[in-house]
C-alpha cells in the first residue's frame, strides 16, 4: 500500500488560509490504513484548521469530506456537491489522488495535505515499512525475496557493502542491512551458493529513468 504522512500544520495553514471555502478531502483506502489521510483524519484536520482560523481571526469556512479512492472516477459521485462548493480542496490522498483531482477538475485549486512517503507494508500496528520502489522489473527472485532496491540505502545488487555492522546499515543502527537479511534467508533455505553469482547491471529503463510509465489493457478500454 501507499504510505503518507501529513504535512506540518503550519505549512498546510499557510497554503490554504487565503481561501473562503475550503474542503479537506480524505481518501479512505491506502493512506487511511496508515492513519494519515483517511476520512476520519480529514475530519480531525478540518477541526484543527478551524481552531487555527479562530485563533488568527481569519474568516474561512472549512468543511470535510472524503471518498474511498481519489484515484478512480467512479468514487467521486457522492462528493460532487461538496467539491463544487469549495474554492479550494486540501486533498490528503497520496500524490496520485491529488493529481487525479487536478486532472478531473481543471478549474479547481487542489493542494496536497500529505507527503507521500513510500510503498510499504504494515509490519505491526503503527509500524509501516518501505518494501518496494516500483522499479518496473522485479528482482526478488535473485535476492531471496528481499527488495534491495528499497531496503539497501545504496540499492546494491551485489551487497553487503563494507558498512554492514551487526546486521545494521551504516546509515543508522535503526536500519536493518538488507543484504544481511538476504544472506540470512539464503542460509535458512540452504541456498548460500546463490550468493556468489554476480547479479548483472540493472536495466533502469523500466524505472522512473525511462520516463512516465503506463499500463494499457486494450480489451478493457472504453
Amino acid at each position: 500500500m501507499i504510505v503518507g504522512k501529513q504535512k506540518p500544520l503550519d505549512d498546510i495553514w499557510n497554503r490554504v488560509k487565503e481561501f473562503e471555502k475550503l474542503l479537506v478531502f480524505g481518501c479512505n483506502t491506502c493512506v487511511a490504513v496508515c492513519h494519515e489521510g483517511g476520512n476520519k483524519e480529514a475530519e480531525i484536520l478540518a477541526s484543527l484548521l478551524r481552531m487555527r482560523a479562530t485563533q488568527e481571526n481569519v474568516s474561512i469556512d472549512i468543511r470535510n469530506s472524503g471518498i474511498e479512492r481519489q484515484c478512480e472516477h467512479e468514487f467521486f459521485e457522492t462528493a460532487e456537491k461538496e467539491i463544487e462548493w469549495a474554492d479550494a480542496v486540501l486533498s490528503i490522498a497520496c500524490g496520485v489522488g491529488v493529481q487525479f483531482m487536478v486532472k478531473r477538475y481543471p478549474l479547481l485549486r487542489v493542494y496536497p495535505g500529505l507527503d507521500t512517503t513510500f510503498m510499504g507494508d504494515v509490519e505491526k500496528p503503527g509500524l509501516f515499512t518501505e518494501s518496494c520502489q516500483a522499479c518496473g522489473k522485479c528482482i526478488l527472485d535473485l535476492t531471496a525475496g528481499i527488495c534491495v532496491m528499497s531496503r539497501c540505502a545504496k540499492r546494491l545488487l551485489n551487497g553487503p557493502c563494507g558498512g554492514s555492522t551487526k546486521g545494521k546499515c551504516e546509515i543508522s543502527k535503526e536500519v536493518d542491512c538488507a543484504w544481511q537479511l538476504v544472506v540470512d534467508r539464503l542460509e535458512t533455505l540452504g541456498n548460500l551458493d546463490e550468493f556468489v553469482k554476480v547479479i548483472p547491471l540493472k536495466d533502469w529503463s523500466t524505472n522512473r529513468d525511462g520516463g512516465p510509465r503506463k499500463l494499457i489493457h486494450e480489451d478493457l478500454e472504453t
Binding site: 551485489n158 553487503p160 555492522t165 546486521g167 542491512c177 540470512d184 548460500l192 550468493f195 556468489v196 554476480v198
Partner: peptide, 14 residues
C-alpha cells in the same frame, strides 16, 4: 571486518 563475517570471503569470491 564488516558483517556478516562468514560471507566476507564469499563476497571476495564474487
Amino acid at each position: 571486518f564488516a558483517d556478516p563475517f562468514h560471507i566476507r570471503a564469499l563476497r571476495l569470491a564474487k
